[in-house]
C-alpha cells in the first residue's frame, strides 16, 4: 500500500459576498494515495472544476481541511506554497484557451523549465522538451516543436497542455475533462498516454469527467466519486460502483448512458428519476439535496434530515435508504 498524498476533510467553498453567498462545495471528504487514480463524475455545475481548482491551489477553501503531504494547504508558508504549486498541476478543460496563442510549442514548454531553473541553458531545454513531447506521443518531435497552438489539432493541443503540466515534475495531476472535446479515435490514445505516464512517473490523478464510460476505463484500477450539488453521493472502487451502484443518482447515471452497441443500448435498463429540473445552488433543497429528483424519496426523512457519506470499507454512499 502506498502512502496517502491528499487528505480532504469536510471541505467547503462558496462564491460571492455575505448575503449572496453561493455554496459550491458543501462538505466533501476523501483521500488520494500517492499513485492512485480518483475519477469524479457528475452533471454540469455540480462543482467538479471548482473542486479541482481547490485541490490545485488555484482557489482557496472556506471550511474543512485539505492536507497535502500531511500539511494544511491554506497554512503553507510562501515558499512551501510555491513548492506545492509545482508538485500539483492542473490540466484545464479547454486546451485552446489555456495555451498562449503567440507562443510556439518550444516556448510554451521551455518557459516553465527556465523559470523554475529545472534546466540550465538551451541544450538542456531542448533535450527536456524533446523528452516531454515524446512522452505525450507527439513524434516526430521536429514536426511539433515550432508549431503555434492554432496550427495543431484539438488532440495535439491537448497533448501540449499535458506536456506542459509535466514540465515541473508534479506528483499530483488534476485533469479536467481532458478528452471530452476529442474524437473517439484519439480519445483512447490520450487516455492510454495518461495511464502510461502514471505508470512511468507514479503520479496520482484526480480525473474530472462527465462521461462515466470514460471514468470506467480510466479508473479501472482506481476509484470513482459521484458528485451531486457540491457533495459526494457515492464513492467506491470503479468495479464496485459500475457493477453494484447503490445511490439512486448513480443508478440513474449508469442507466442513462448510451452504449456503443445497438442491442445493449436499446435494451438497457433505465433508472428513471422524477421529472424535475436540477435545483440551483442558490436554492439547494434541504434534507437530502437529491430528494426533488429521487424516485425513492420518503417523508419525512429524505426531506428533512441531512445525509452523510457512510458505509463500511471502500464503498460509501450518502443516502438514507441505502
Amino acid at each position: 500500500m502506498s502512502r496517502t498524498l491528499i487528505e480532504v476533510k469536510d471541505i467547503s467553498k462558496s462564491f460571492g459576498e455575505k448575503n449572496k453567498k453561493v455554496p459550491v462545495l458543501r462538505g466533501l471528504t476523501f483521500n488520494i494515495k500517492a499513485d492512485e487514480i480518483l475519477c469524479v463524475v457528475g452533471e454540469s455545475g455540480c462543482g467538479k472544476t471548482t473542486l479541482g481548482k481547490v485541490l490545485a491551489g488555484l482557489e482557496g477553501y472556506n471550511g474543512g481541511s485539505y492536507l497535502h503531504e500531511k500539511k494544511e494547504v491554506n497554512k503553507l508558508s510562501k515558499k512551501d506554497f510555491k513548492l506545492f504549486r509545482r508538485r500539483v498541476q492542473m490540466i484545464h478543460q479547454d486546451p485552446f484557451a489555456s495555451l498562449n496563442p503567440t507562443q510556439n510549442v518550444f516556448t510554451i514548454l521551455s518557459a516553465p523549465l527556465y523559470r523554475h531553473k529545472i534546466v540550465k541553458g538551451y541544450q538542456q531545454a531542448v533535450d527536456k522538451v524533446n523528452s516531454l513531447l515524446d512522452l505525450v506521443g507527439l513524434t516526430p518531435v521536429q514536426d511539433f516543436i515550432d508549431k503555434f497552438p492554432h496550427q495543431l489539432s484539438g488532440g495535439q493541443r491537448q497533448r501540449i497542455s499535458i506536456a506542459r503540466s509535466l514540465t515541473l515534475e508534479p506528483a499530483f495531476l488534476i485533469v479536467d475533462e481532458a478528452v471530452s472535446m476529442i474524437d473517439t479515435s484519439l480519445r483512447i490514445s490520450i487516455l492510454n498516454n495518461l495511464l502510461e505516464i502514471q505508470n512511468k512517473l507514479k503520479v496520482a490523478y484526480f480525473f474530472i469527467t462527465h462521461d462515466l464510460a470514460v471514468a470506467n476505463y480510466f479508473a479501472q484500477k482506481g476509484r470513482i466519486a459521484v458528485m451531486y450539488l457540491g457533495k459526494i453521493v457515492e464513492i467506491a472502487p470503479t468495479e464496485e460502483i459500475i457493477g453494484n451502484p447503490r445511490h439512486p443518482y448513480t443508478r440513474a447515471l449508469i442507466g442513462a448512458i448510451p452504449e456503443a452497441d445497438p442491442e445493449v443500448t436499446r435494451q438497457k435498463e433505465r433508472f428513471k428519476l422524477k421529472d424535475s429540473e436540477v435545483p440551483s445552488l442558490q436554492n439547494i433543497p434541504g434534507g437530502c439535496a437529491f430528494h426533488t429528483r429521487c424516485p425513492w424519496a420518503e417523508k419525512p426523512i429524505c426531506y428533512e434530515k441531512e445525509v452523510r457519506l457512510t458505509g463500511s470499507g471502500q464503498h460509501k454512499t450518502a443516502c438514507h435508504l441505502v
Binding site: 490514445s189 464510460a213 459500475i242
Partner: peptide, 17 residues
Amino acid sequence: AVPKIVAGEGEEGLTSI
C-alpha cells in the same frame, strides 16, 4: 476504441487508431 460500461468490455485496454 469506444469505452463501454457493460460487463465484459473495456477491461482489455482499448486500442486507438
